[in-house]
Amino acid sequence: MWSREHKPIVGVFGFSGCAGDQLAILHMEDALVDFFTSADIKFFHMAQSHQEVPEVDIALVEGSINTSKQLEELKEIRQKAKIVVSLGTCACYGGIQYLGSNEDVFKERMEYVYGKEGKNPEFLDLIGQPQAAEPISKYIKVDVMIPGCPIAPENFIPIYTKLISGLIPQKYPYPVCVECKFKDNDCFLLKGKYCLGPVTAAGCDAICPSIDVSCVGCFGPYEGSNYPSMIDKLMEIGLTEEEAKRKLRMFGGDVLEKNLDGDN
């Protein structure tokens, strides 16, 4: 029979984002005691004072990479971690800030904020040179992705508990529509309202459609997405092609960048 061999060492690291995924962990009130006792939490950006990056079995990494110093720290985490998990949509796909990652857009905005001469304020020495937002997978090998904006405990906990138990989490891609139908919900698209359920990874338990709010895609892209057909459908219900693509890009990050082939 199966049992755990040892208590793993876990680190929770945070880069650019709203820190909502770390907060989501701290908000899992029913599971919080178990979270802090079932593993040896050696590093938790939001819950502890900052310290050196330790050697860990599992690194949960939140946020996109936006500065040169973050990139150095990310590489250090990869070296010191056996398993790296990208936590939340920013770490997985770049997040909303990825919308400004186009080289021209990024340059324009830097100039707008910091002036044409490119004079950086002093605190940039502390955080490093700014760079366009990228998902952590752009720079390092990621073993497991747990998207969400923020992550949902009901999706995070089963994957995390497998990891701390030395088991391989099963990756079975399905879209929000599956969880939505589980709840007997009506379909927005059929009522002529936009919804990104068919192109969005599940895990949220269809929380928004269940309270009559369209899915905006915050769990990031669903692997089986059919973008051309989705765009056709959105145009059929009255969106322009540009509006449809903008909605797809909002949480789609690098995956949508590749799939929409650089058009607007």
Binding site: P158, T161, K162, S165, L167, Q170, Y172, Y174, P175, C177, V178, K181, F182, C187, G197, P198, V199, G224, S225, N226, S229, M230, K233
Partner: peptide, 23 residues
């Protein structure tokens, strides 16, 4: 096809299931 799975989820005779262990 959007590969959304809706056709088979709403079909009253479709019954395939996936099995997962939760620890």
């Amino acid at each position: 096809c959007l590969s959304c799975g809706v056709c088979s989820l709403v079909c009253p005779t479709c019954n395939c299931f996936n099995v997962e262990d939760k620890i």
